[in-house]
């Protein structure tokens, strides 16, 4: 068995950071505000497709070069061009990365806001769940069949992470991992602040009883659309980081199972608890990576047993056990969440 433990740990940290962003986003939407977002894969994919487009269209422009169509006959020169820019012009790569994050967050946010505002006005939040579930598949099928976005079913390679210009590949991986974890931590802090504020109180009220919240002067459709904007923007940022981490954008990576993985994370960790979302993300990531490594090792040893599929069975069993024996998750939602309690305890 030949495993580079340090590289594995860095990879694990990076995957954890990306998963944590997704989990915090869904926890905010469903755990805190009660919006059943079954389109997590859609919003993550929007971020990844945005990265595909900016790395092939925007980055050459930022570098003062001509844009080369990234698919078909010009696939190789386009790939060489972006690889060259990433390696020789780190400032351009970083600027392109920053712009990609902003564009992805805005696109994800607007799509989340728009869909939720339209569907939640009919006062049936499960319509939203279905629209997002189906919408994610529709977008995936369109992208897989429409070449200009990410070269259809071929996907796009050479979507390198922004520290790729460093000669030391390990250092580049460490910096990227730290940056990803930094994003996840920022999302955690933001989410915690929201939950502890009067806005967090409002979100929970909307989750518990929409009718009463409306009768107390709260514009429920707008509040839900706002939180979908925030959550979807976070998910799209996670999508950019996901694509950059694997260096490749393929529509096949953003299927329903991705959405279900994120649901497992928040149910496992504890709905409505941001720390729980982090714990869930960590457990699912570790389980995911360990099963992937074991699967590779078994394949190398000549085993015909496809261990990767065991992962889905494991997730299903864990979910069932949690719902049966500890539905509140590993870290249940705390009772005193808003800061008003701290003030009142003191008074």
């Amino acid at each position: 068995m030949n495993i580079d433990f340090f590289a594995t740990a860095i990879a694990l940290l990076t995957f954890f950071g990306i998963a944590a962003l997704m989990a915090i986003s869904l926890n905010l939407e469903y755990g805190v505000a009660g919006i059943p977002n079954f389109g997590q894969a859609l919003f993550v994919s929007l971020g990844a497709y945005t990265a595909g487009i900016t790395y092939t269209r925007l980055m050459p422009l930022l570098a003062g070069q001509e844009v080369i169509f990234p698919c078909g006959n010009t696939l190789n020169p386009a790939l060489q061009l972006r690889t060259e820019i990433m390696r020789t012009l780190p400032g351009v790569g970083l600027a392109n990365f920053a712009i990609t994050l902003v564009i992805a967050a805005v696109i994800g946010g607007i799509v989340g806001y728009g869909i939720s505002y339209l569907t939640l006005r009919v006062r049936q939040e499960w319509y939203l769940a279905l629209v997002l579930l189906v919408g994610g598949e529709i977008v995936r099928i369109i992208v897989r069949g429409y070449e200009p976005i990410i070269c259809a079913s071929n996907g796009l390679s050479g979507i390198a992470q922004p520290f790729n210009w460093l000669d030391n590949a390990q250092l580049a991986s460490i910096l990227f991992a730290l940056m990803v974890v930094g994003f996840a931590f920022a999302a955690y802090l933001y989410s915690e602040r929201l939950v502890r504020s009067p806005y967090g109180r409002l979100l929970k009220a909307v989750r518990e009883n929409e009718r009463v919240a409306r009768s107390l002067g709260k514009n429920v459709a707008r509040i839900r659309a706002q939180i979908m904007f925030i959550g979807s923007a976070m998910a799209a940022v996670a999508g950019v980081l996901f694509a950059l981490n694997i260096g490749f954008v393929s529509a096949n990576d953003y299927v329903v199972t991705l959405t279900l993985d994120v649901w497992v994370m928040i149910v496992l960790g504890g709905l409505g608890n941001n720390k729980g979302a982090l714990v869930g993300a960590l457990l699912v990531t570790v389980l995911d990576r360990v099963t992937a490594i074991v699967a590779i090792q078994l394949n190398m040893l000549g085993s015909e047993f496809e261990f990767n599929y065991l992962r889905f069975i494991l997730f299903g069993v864990i979910l069932l056990l949690m719902l049966r024996y500890r539905p509140q998750g590993i870290l249940p939602e705390p009772q005193h969440t808003t800061l008003a309690h701290d003030m009142s305890d003191a008074s």
């Binding site: 009067p198 806005y199 409002l202 929970k204 009220a205 518990e208 808003t338 008003a340 309690h341």
Partner: peptide
């Protein structure tokens, strides 16, 4: 709102709360 505290229930209907905004919060 049964899962919320009595205090949070009581504070919810207060009008014009600055903290009831995703940015100011």
């Amino acid at each position: 709102f049964f899962q919320m505290t009595v205090l949070d229930n009581t504070l919810l209907p207060v009008k014009y709360q600055h903290g009831e905004h995703p940015v100011w919060a």
